[in-house]
Design a protein around this nucleic acid. Structure first.
Lengths: 252, 252
DNA sequence: TGTACATCAGTGAACGCGCGTTCACTGATGTAC
DNA sequence: TGTACATCAGTGAACGCGCGTTCACTGATGTAC
């Protein structure tokens, strides 16, 4: 009776937090596979990621990889989901340590963090937002939550600023197209976002502008056009923040 | 003497305008190759274009294609240059038949034409502006002029509106970052554009906004966000035109 | 007008390469009693 | 504590496929005299 309880205890402990040596080894190998895959992606593009290439670099046979991924597509899916989460992490970290009411500064920092991540990991960015990989489509149940984390990171300061009346709507308020307005209302209801649809509209517009600019930069079309992409991006951010009329409030 | 002259005449005539049957046949085959390549691109992505696949579809041997392109990369280059020119054609056609002084309408139509082309030929768009093909870089001497045609189509109404004082600069005028300002000045000098650098700056900002939005739409990230991409795009165009404060003038 | 020759489109076999996936297997590491 | 067994990581050969490029060639179409 005593031993049984002890054993149960150990099992529970392991299940909760302590991985067995084997599980640890397995996790390490999984990590190594993904690391090498990402480097191959950086060097040869998304289509250059190859099970055989990874095996070669790990001094394994190809077939060993099938212990970790049932197929090539599952590996790609993992890379995609990881990339979305990494981007979301970067955005969230972008406004850490700032007073909650520094809405404008927070949004600005998030914009800078967005660019920093994209510039640092261009191939991960291309993987998730570039030309879709032909004959592959990621499973929505895994990507959607990861995508949403990133969007929420952008929306949060806007929503909070809106609650604190630190955004002046001006005419944009009325210019939300009715069909879009209705769609956003549905989104808000479905995911219980708890923000007015105008907020979501502004958030999306911010995201789309940031994102579009960075997409051009990372694919090498921006620098030939404007020379100094850093300065240009900063000007775009400021213009965007100005058009939102979003402000920092001193905490009460 | 007489025959010689006649022969020369014929030769000249042919060189100037009349292609020989063989040249005609050759041009047809070249066209067919490119047409099939573009269809393969639409079906299987840019990386899915294959000499062997084209040959198969044309009921030719692969080696026959080497009569037309010395290598695979040369075919891709041709597709890229063609796509840039097709886009420029569409933009130019966008504001045909409008009075020269209808600046705002012309720019609006160009924006719509941009979207129309991108939506109609998404794979051509992905080819020239999507994720770069790994280990391939297009020869600049062929792409740069083709790219410029498109840009000039957008810049022209803006430059003309500027000359006619149909643009109100507002604060954007002062917000051009100095480094960007200097770079644009150089561009204008190098290519003798004959427009002030502020004009170029506005033009690029229009292009970047239009382009970024369409990039998201064509890669399927816009519709899940805003629902009605047509209405959203129209609102973006209007917002952009408003921010430029560009106006139609009645012709004098 | 007819003949000799050059030009050109297209053939067919071969080279060397890389890919994802399957299958039956070996040997080490853990687990239950 | 020792033994029998299950689990698991990794092997190695093979399958079937598609790719770009080379080479020596055939036969039809044009050209020069």
């Amino acid at each position: 009776m005593f031993t049984v309880l002890t054993n149960l205890n150990i099992v529970n402990k392991r299940e909760r937090c302590m991985p067995t040596p084997r599980e640890k080894q397995r996790a390490n190998t999984l990590d190594e596979i993904k690391t090498i895959a990402r480097r191959q992606m950086a060097e040869h593009g998304a289509m250059g990621v190859t099970l055989r290439g990874i095996a070669r670099e790990m001094d394994l046979t190809v077939t060993a990889l099938y212990r970790y991924y049932p197929s090539y597509d599952d590996l790609i899916t993992d890379l995609i989901v990881d990339a979305f989460h990494a981007l979301a992490d970067a955005l969230e970290a972008g406004n850490y340590g700032l007073p909650q009411t520094a809405f404008r500064t927070r949004l600005h920092r998030i914009g800078l963090a967005y660019r920093q991540w994209v510039i640092t990991y261009p191939s991960d960015f291309a993987l998730i937002y570039g030309t879709p990989i032909p004959n592959y489509s990621a499973p929505r149940e895994r990507t959607v939550p990861a995508v949403q984390r990133g969007l929420i990171a952008i929306m949060t300061p806007i929503a909070q600023a809106h609650h604190h009346h630190a955004i002046t709507p001006i005419e944009s308020f009325r210019s939300v197209p009715p069909t879009v307005h209705r769609y956003l209302d549905e989104l808000i209801e479905d995911y219980s976002f708890g923000v007015p649809s105008e907020t979501l509209y502004w958030g999306y517009r911010c995201w789309i502008r940031i994102h579009g600019t960075l997409m051009l930069e990372v694919f090498n079309h921006l620098k030939p056009s404007v020379g100094d992409s850093v300065a240009f991006y900063e000007a775009e951010l400021q213009d965007m923040l100005n058009s939102l009329k979003i402000q920092d409030l001193s905490p009460p």
